Amino acid sequence: MIRNIIFDWSGTLVNDLPGVWKATNHVLEQANVPTLTLDEFRDEFQLPFTDFYDRFTPDVPLEKLEGWFHSSFREVCGEVIALPHANDFLDFCKSEKFRCFILSTVNPEYFIVQAANAGMDGCFENLYLGIWDKREKIHEIISENNLLKDETLYIGDMQHDVETAHHGGIPSCALLTGYNTLEQLRESKPTIITSNLDELKT
């Protein structure tokens, strides 16, 4: 029986895909690299995001890439809203007394703004933010929170989320509400794939 849920943030609970796509194209423009359509971005983007930039802008220092990205994303950060069913699912988790956590690459500064906008303040027991490679953090989260692996579910929208769950030895749920496509997620072999969080309540 699942008693603990580790959530990804972007594309799982909130929709920041339009803003991240726009900011990433700003980075590519600054680096004189062709920009991507939304479909191309979803096909190509990956975590850790440093691997994405290693492929597209290998000669540009990461510090400069980060500066370009944040200069663009800060303009739209406040427009990020909750995904459909996300708040209802968090209410369901509260009613079922699930322990809930966040493991995400999201910048802590952005998380504060987005969580407030989405009405998700105070929904999580612990936050693990700004984690570029989640596989390096999952064992620590399980250990320091005394989570039993067979009672803990990782929910995310990207292959990296599923890979993180595999690395931690816990079941995974891949959502079709975010960055990766059904085909990409199937390749990672999650425990289950759902269209949205509402389907998990049944």
Rank of each mutant, 00 (worst) to 15 (best):
I5E: 04
W9F: 15
G11T: 08
T12S: 09
L17A: 09
L17W: 02
A23F: 02
V27W: 03
L28D: 00
Q30S: 11
T35A: 05
T35D: 00
L36F: 12
D39W: 01
L47V: 06
L47P: 00
F49S: 12
T50K: 12
T50F: 06
F52P: 04
D54L: 08
P61I: 06
S71L: 07
R74K: 15
R74G: 01
V76C: 07
G78T: 04
A82D: 02
L83T: 02
H85V: 04
R99G: 15
F101I: 11
I102D: 05
S104P: 05
E109G: 00
Q114D: 02
A118T: 13
D121E: 15
N126G: 02
N126W: 03
N126S: 13
L127S: 06
D133Y: 08
K134W: 06
H139I: 15
E140T: 14
S143I: 08
E144C: 11
E144H: 13
N145D: 06
L147H: 07
K149Q: 15
K149M: 11
D150G: 09
I155L: 06
G156Q: 04
Q159E: 13
H160T: 12
T164P: 07
H167W: 13
H167M: 14
G169V: 03
S172N: 03
L175R: 06
T177R: 08
T181P: 10
E183V: 08
E183P: 01
E187H: 10
E187I: 14
T191D: 12
I192H: 07
I193V: 12
